[in-house]
């Protein structure tokens, strides 16, 4: 498979803290990869290094053929990072919708401001994506009038409207009330089914098991296991994986 994301020899330090330790990872086109791991194992940092919300300390990131190596400088490097950001969409745990903009304005903001798309075209595209997350009827509402689940679905539509090559989800359901998690996971399943390449940090083991093509286990800044979900959940090789999924195994079968 053609890799959409290729992470090579990635290291990340926060001050003296070594948070990511020589990560190598490839994600193929249309692949859905779930990342699981204990709190503090570096999952978010890994995801955020891909679109340079964090500056990696070492190594390189390649997204859809655009390769950014740590150490590059100046205008050219900034352009490469910008290109990578255009190819990645990100969904945050806390939604981060823009509260001063309506739902529709939130969704067209990227295409209009960043891509310079004309408004009419952007609105068409935005409405299409809002429809696909089931929230077209809320397009004129402001975010504070939406439920958490609705906010997150708008955030997904906002990212999709930029037509990225890969979607990064950082615990998209962790801030939600339990009864709202399902609607967001359903939208994510749909996005996966439509062929989007996805990297999903999640504690939703059911989702990982059902939707992921691969599950990656992180511990202490390293990838300790990378396998098909059946393998991870039925025959974990690493004791740290076992510790992670034990609750799920006993709880859900």
């Amino acid at each position: 498979m053609l890799p959409i994301v290729k992470i090579s020899n990635l290291d990340k330090y926060f001050g003296r803290l070594h948070v990511l330790n020589n990560i190598n990872l490839e994600v193929g086109e249309r692949e859905v990869v779930c990342i699981i791991g204990r709190s503090g194992s570096g999952k978010s940092t890994l995801l955020r290094c891909i679109n340079f919300l964090e500056d990696p300390s070492h190594g390189s990131i390649e997204v859809d053929g655009v390769r950014v190596a740590v150490g590059g400088k100046g205008k050219q490097q900034r352009q490469l990072i910008h290109d990578v950001r255009l190819k990645t969409g990100m969904v945050f745990q806390e939604f981060n919708l823009f509260p001063h903009m309506s739902v529709l304005e939130n969704v067209i903001e990227g295409p209009v401001t960043v891509k310079g798309m004309d408004r009419k075209h952007a609105v068409e595209l935005a409405e299409q994506h809002l429809d696909s997350v089931g929230l077209l009827f809320k397009k004129d509402e402001y975010p504070n009038r939406l439920s958490g689940g609705q906010k997150q679905r708008v955030a997904i539509a906002r990212a999709l409207t930029m037509e990225p090559r890969v979607m990064l989800f950082d615990e998209p359901t962790s801030a939600l009330d339990p009864e709202l998690i399902g609607e967001v996971l359903n939208v994510m399943k749909k996005v996966a089914k439509d062929g989007m390449t996805m990297l999903v940090v999640t504690h939703e083991m059911g989702f990982a098991r059902e939707v992921a093509d691969r599950v990656i286990v992180m511990a202490d800044g390293e990838l300790v296991e990378d396998n098909k979900p059946e393998q991870i959940f039925n025959a974990p090789k690493d004791p740290r994986t076992e510790a992670l999924i034990v609750r799920y195994r006993t709880g859900g079968g």
């Binding site: 679109n51 919300l53 910008h82 950001r85 255009l86 990645t88 969409g89 990100m90 945050f92 806390e94 981060n96 919708l97 823009f98 509260p99 001063h100 903001e109 990227g110 401001t113 960043v114 891509k115 955030a155 906002r158 990212a159 930029m162």
Partner: peptide
């Protein structure tokens, strides 16, 4: 909040666009 800037940056906004479109309108309000 920091998340607002990050959302803007993740969309591909430049620092100036982030300031003008996302941070300033909220700060001024």
């Amino acid at each position: 909040g920091k998340g607002q800037r990050e959302a803007a940056i993740a969309l591909g906004m430049t620092p100036i666009q982030t300031m003008r479109r996302v941070v300033l309108p909220q700060a001024l309000r």
